[in-house]
């Protein structure tokens, strides 16, 4: 709803200005210049990935010779076959997908259920000021890795999947964004629902959440990308390397081991998993899910992020 309005507005704006543009030669040149610069910037953002795709489909000799640029040479799909035939890689991929789904669900529930009361007045919810003060203190401080691990160990989360999704479930900054977004939802809709006999939880679910799709979608993408890209907590909290999420698994592929302690077999295995086209293929596979999801959520960014963060 909110989103449509912005798009609408943008259209109006463009139309208005279209009418104004006189096509003097200078203006035309100016326009072309802007289109050109933006085109180059846009290309700069995609070329590295095209290069990587070209590498992943190329033979290893042209890669070593450094002649692969944007098009595969000695085209083959071995690197992808290698990755997809590889139970360890696919398992890590699956764990990452699971982590994103569960993590995003948890985060969003937590965000909404916390931001909603906070968006209300302190008369309606007297705990608000206390909570906000605690949040600010929490934002300003941090215990560091060791105490955090001890806490996780005491509550029994270490060595479980939950260690990946529970800490960080409530991002304080995101919570403020959602809270501010809720505040901009007109109270009349809420009053109408209350008249119909809904309690505040029902109001939140039936009125606020549907109206807040942009901010919720943006938050979903943020937390999802965060979970997808994180490698450290996988390493720290997962007991078995077979339960590592994808990025933690990929660390093994991109870091160099200490050669003097490796056996001959280990070295050969290392040489295989780190060959450049295998690396490229695994990176591409690891990046694809994000590339698939984000264009669908892109339309929400503008309303979701700005209305939440900056009040009018």
């Amino acid at each position: 709803m909110a989103n449509e309005t912005v798009v609408e507005k943008e259209k109006n704006l463009v139309m208005t200005r279209n009418r104004q543009i006189r096509s003097s030669p200078v203006e035309k040149l100016f326009t072309m210049l802007i289109y050109g610069i933006l085109g180059i910037l846009g290309a700069s953002c995609i070329i590295p990935f095209i290069h990587l795709i070209a590498l992943s489909f190329s033979g290893s000799d042209p890669i070593k010779a450094g002649i692969v640029s944007l098009w595969p040479i000695e085209f083959n799909t071995d690197a992808y076959k290698y990755a997809l035939d590889h139970p360890a890689f696919m398992r890590a991929f699956g764990i990452s997908v699971g982590r994103v789904i569960v993590g995003v669900t948890f985060s969003l529930s937590m965000l909404v259920i916390t931001a909603y009361p906070l968006s209300k007045s302190k008369e309606a919810c007297p705990l608000n000021p206390l909570f906000k003060v605690l949040m600010i203190i929490a934002m300003l401080t941090g215990g560091g890795l060791i105490p955090m691990y001890l806490v996780m160990s005491w509550i029994g989360l270490t060595n479980t999947f939950w260690a990946l999704v529970v800490p960080g479930m409530l991002s304080l900054w995101n919570c403020f964004m959602v809270m501010n977004f809720f505040r901009n939802v007109p109270s009349e809709l809420e009053e109408a629902a209350i008249v119909d006999g809904a309690n505040s939880f029902q109001v939140m679910v039936k009125v606020y959440v549907p109206l807040s799709v942009p901010v919720i979608a943006s938050m979903a993408l943020f937390t999802g990308v965060g979970h997808w890209n994180d490698w450290f907590s996988g390493m720290l909290y997962m007991a078995r390397s077979r339960d590592y999420p994808l990025q933690t698994y990929l660390r093994q592929v991109v870091t160099t081991p200490n050669f003097s302690t490796l056996t001959i077999e280990e070295m050969q295995k290392y040489a295989q998993i780190t060959s450049k086209n295998n690396q490229a293929a695994q990176i591409i596979i690891a990046t694809v899910p994000i590339m698939c999801v984000y264009p669908f959520l892109q339309k929400y960014f503008m309303t979701g992020l700005t209305l939440g963060g900056v009040k009018g």
């Binding site: 390493m235 078995r240 390397s241 933690t248 698994y249 093994q252 081991p257």
Partner: peptide, 8 residues
């Protein structure tokens, strides 16, 4: 537990 890199 086990680990896949020395760092881990």
């Amino acid at each position: 537990w086990n680990a896949n890199t020395d760092e881990a």
